[in-house]
């Protein structure tokens, strides 16, 4: 196990005037760790995710990332070019709606290959083979490589989005409600895939979800948010099996037992 955290978050807050988006969030994330950020609508979880992934500028606080060269960089002291490069190579972002994370009018193969081409790969055959491998890994039939995602089901699109993000071997993946809007059976398959990939590739991931079952299945650690604040955090099974805060107890007790 590595001794250096991949991500160090200190005092992160986002205010919209007087309104709190998220406040005083602090944590560290290690390589290979999956952190779930759980909360209901309006809890600030998506705001937090966006502040962490440089999609939203926070009001105060810092987010430091452990670069491949070994040093820590504060994300908001980087140039936009550096941030965008990081977003394309070392990071992934899986959107809730796969159409937001894909190019819908471009073939599946090109969707997966784009990041490779963006970092300078210039061999068509190799790019296509890599794309094909990844489609297989996310259980999309490789004969769909030239089809556009417009012709794919929701679950397939989501799996394609995951392949597109993972092709450059990122170390950190952000996921915003990755199973939102999918049928239950499709969700199960997707979660299983994500779990497998995270394990196999040693990824770190930050997963925002309102679904505690997703948190239970995917994450090692969990943060519960309410009204912009992190009200409870810890080992996922501890938070779910022995919730301490009133709100957490409410959340856990509200899950429908099947």
């Amino acid at each position: 196990m590595s001794d250096t955290p991949l991500l160090k978050v200190r005092d992160l807050s986002k205010f919209y005037g007087k309104r709190i988006g998220c406040a005083n969030v602090a944590f560290e994330l290690w390589p290979g760790e999956v952190l779930a950020i759980v909360g209901e609508s309006g809890s600030g979880k998506t705001t937090l995710l966006n502040c962490l992934s440089t999609r939203l500028m926070p009001t105060t606080g810092s987010v430091e990332y452990h670069m491949r060269d070994g040093g820590y960089r504060d994300l908001y002291h980087m140039s936009e070019a550096e941030r965008r490069f990081l977003m394309r190579t070392d990071w992934g972002f899986v959107h809730q709606n796969p159409a937001d994370g894909l190019r819908m009018t471009v073939s599946a193969g090109a969707n997966v290959g784009e990041r490779l081409m963006a970092i300078g790969n210039r061999h068509y055959g190799n790019i296509r083979n890599t794309a094909s491998d990844w489609l297989e890994r996310v259980e999309i039939s490789t004969d769909r490589i030239d089809d556009q995602p417009r012709a794919f089901s929701g679950g397939m699109r989501q799996r394609l989005q995951i392949a597109r993000n993972l092709v450059t071997g990122p170390r950190l993946v952000f996921m915003d409600e990755p199973t939102g809007g999918l049928d239950v059976s499709v969700q199960a398959r997707l979660l299983d895939l994500v779990r497998g990939l995270v394990n196999d590739l040693g990824l770190s991931a930050i997963v925002v979800t309102h679904d505690l079952a997703v948190a239970r299945l995917l994450s090692h650690r969990m943060m519960v948010m309410k009204d912009g604040y992190v009200i409870e955090q810890g080992l996922t099974d501890r938070v779910l099996d022995d919730p301490r805060e009133p709100y957490t107890q409410l959340l856990v007790s509200s899950i429908l037992q099947v």
């Binding site: 810890g234 080992l235 501890r238 099996d241 022995d242 301490r244």
Partner: peptide, 9 residues
């Protein structure tokens, strides 16, 4: 047992 395992606080 659960406390020992860290499952309970």
């Amino acid at each position: 047992l659960k406390m020992l395992y860290g499952n309970y606080a």
